[in-house]
Amino acid sequence: MPLLSSLECDYPLIDSDFCKFCASHAILSVEDFLLHDLYVLVISTEQHHNSERLKEGITQVLTIINKQHQPWVDGQELLDDALQNKRFLPTGCRSIDAFLHGGLKEGYLTELVGTSSSGKTQICLQTASAVAKNWGKIVFLDSGNSFSPKRVAQIVTQTSDLSACEVDKALQQVMNNIVCMSVFDIFTLFEVLHQLKNNLRSQIDQHIKMLIIDSISSLITPILGGGGAQGHALMVSVGFLLKRLAHEHDISILVTNHMVGGERGTSKPALGESWRSVPHVRLLLSKDHVRNISSMSVLRHPHMAAGDRVEFELQ
Rank of each mutant, 00 (worst) to 15 (best):
I155S: 00
P12R: 02
T159A: 01
K105G: 03
F99V: 12
V278A: 00
A305M: 13
Q195A: 11
C124Y: 02
A246M: 10
F147W: 05
N199S: 15
L38V: 15
Q172V: 10
A246I: 10
N198S: 14
H303N: 15
I43G: 00
I178F: 09
D142N: 01
I216S: 02
G239M: 07
S237V: 08
W135C: 14
V260Q: 13
L254D: 07
N292R: 13
P222S: 05
Q122M: 05
S237D: 08
P12T: 02
D205S: 13
Q84S: 08
Y39R: 12
M259R: 00
R300K: 15
V113F: 02
G75R: 04
S148L: 08
I123A: 03
H69N: 15
L283V: 09
S215T: 11
V298S: 04
L112N: 03
S202C: 11
F147P: 00
C124F: 02
L200Y: 03
E77V: 10
T59P: 01
R244P: 05
G262Q: 06
H101P: 01
L162T: 02
A132P: 07
A128L: 05
E8Y: 10
D168M: 12
L283H: 08
A130Q: 05
F88D: 08
D80M: 13
I178T: 09
D32K: 10
D37Y: 04
M1G: 12
H69L: 13
E77C: 09
L241T: 13
S297D: 03
S29H: 02
L7G: 06
S294D: 05
G144H: 06
L83K: 14
S218K: 09
H303P: 00
M296W: 03
E56D: 15
N134I: 12
M296C: 08
L112P: 02
L284H: 06
L3I: 04
I253T: 02
I251R: 00
G119E: 06
A170T: 14
G226K: 08
L193I: 07
